[in-house]
């Protein structure tokens, strides 16, 4: 007797909003995000017999979507998230080094680097369920310049190799570590600002 399918359409649709949110972290164009989510749902539905239940359904779906997003970025003809960005580092005013605002000319802190970051002491798996912290994370990553965001998500969240992450962000592999460093500093300053003055 054939075993029943491991999930039905309603089960899949129960994860649709989370998939859409995941896609929107990586691309600003919501049309492309919608398209990729649909592709993911369709692929999952077609391959449902291959789902062995060893991981949670959402984890499995996010794995599929993650690959589809990387494929999307790899396609050189379709890089809408980056088309508006400057191709030359430094030309884009959004990509100024955040360290210039945090340090004076002697290289000393202009701000207290430890203020407002007490929330980092919480376990990450618990902190992400605090609505305020989750809102800060969403805001801060959304505010990154497009190339920094693609670099950060590809490298830090999707664990892509540096060369691949650099190609996705359309930057030189040699300058990618510097841009990633700036992205991390901007995220840190953004979170610190929220930590000091929650809003």
């Amino acid at each position: 007797m054939a075993s029943p399918p491991p999930f039905d359409i309603d089960d899949l649709m129960g994860h649709a909003d989370a998939l859409y949110a995941f896609a929107m972290t990586r691309m600003r164009d919501h049309h492309h995000a919608q398209e990729l989510v649909q592709d993911t749902l369709v692929a999952a539905w077609k391959k449902r017999d291959g789902f062995d239940g060893r991981s949670a359904l959402r984890t499995w779906l996010i794995g599929i979507l993650r690959h589809k997003i990387l494929d999307f970025h790899r396609s050189s003809a379709r890089t809408p998230t980056l088309q508006a960005a400057s191709r030359t580092p430094g030309d884009n005013p959004d990509e100024r080094d955040p360290l210039d605002l945090l340090f004076d000319a002697r290289g000393s802190w202009k701000v207290d680097p430890n203020a407002g970051l007490d929330f980092l002491a919480e376990a990450p798996t618990e902190a992400i369920h605090r609505s305020d912290i989750l809102e800060w994370l969403r805001h801060c990553i959304a505010e990154l310049p497009a190339r920094w965001r693609v670099l950060f998500t590809a490298r830090e969240l999707d664990h892509a190799e540096m060369a691949e992450a650099a190609a996705l962000a359309e930057v030189k592999t040699t300058s990618a570590p510097v841009l990633l460093t700036r992205a991390r500093h901007q995220l840190r300053a953004c979170l610190q600002s929220f930590g000091i003055r929650p809003r």
């Binding site: 998939l19 959402r58 996010i62 989750l134």
Partner: peptide
């Protein structure tokens, strides 16, 4: 952690 939980998007 937020990303793996599918919580990081808009």
């Amino acid at each position: 952690a937020a990303d793996e939980a599918g919580l990081l998007g808009e």
